[in-house]
Design a protein around this nucleic acid. Sequence first.
DNA 1: CAGTCACG
DNA 2: GCCG
Length: 217
Amino acid sequence: MNLDLFDQPDEQPDWAEPLAPGAMVLRGLALATQHEILAALAPLIARAPFRHLVTPGGHRMSVAMSNCGHLGWVSDARGYRYSGIDPDSGLPWPAIPAPWLALALDAARRAGFPDFDPQACLINRYQPGARLTLHQDRNEHQLTQPIVSVSLGLPAVFLFGGDRREDKTQRIPLAHGDVVVWGGPARMRYHGVLPVKPGVHPLLGECRVNLTFRQVT
DNA sequence: CAGTCACG
DNA sequence: GCCG
């Protein structure tokens, strides 16, 4: 199933690039899938608008965030955590749209994680200059399941480090439609995003949107 | 330390 | 001044 979410490998020999043991980049999301994914974005953001969270250390994040799914990732002075309620509205987060879930499951399966069942999708908006410094995803309990990260809109450089912050990082250029999956031995690798360069994407304008799917429990 | 900045 |  889902064999048509990515374009045929023949047309793009390097469509699945191993990054490290347990990590890979999938390139060439099919056009029909791209449009399904993008069509679902506006209604979600109408219900749970992007907002700049504050780190426990008191810094405003340059990336603006929202969530969908049973659980959403939030940060404030009390720390990082998952919450079933949007703290801005008091409402549950909207459901993960079916095409988003299909893509996340397909990408996870292709990367060797057939049992992925995400309850959380963090939606990150990077306007030019926005970045994410090197960090680990460590607020999830279910560490046997991977992280699935979908890039949309403006390109960016993904930093993929090691198990320690000081380890050397790989720089991976990511374009609209690229999906990165990391899990297993790579699950706790440090990662981040360099400041997004100014530009205009034909579908999303002056922004990059990243969808990060996670199985929390 | 999911940020910022000093320093080479 | 930019980069790491």
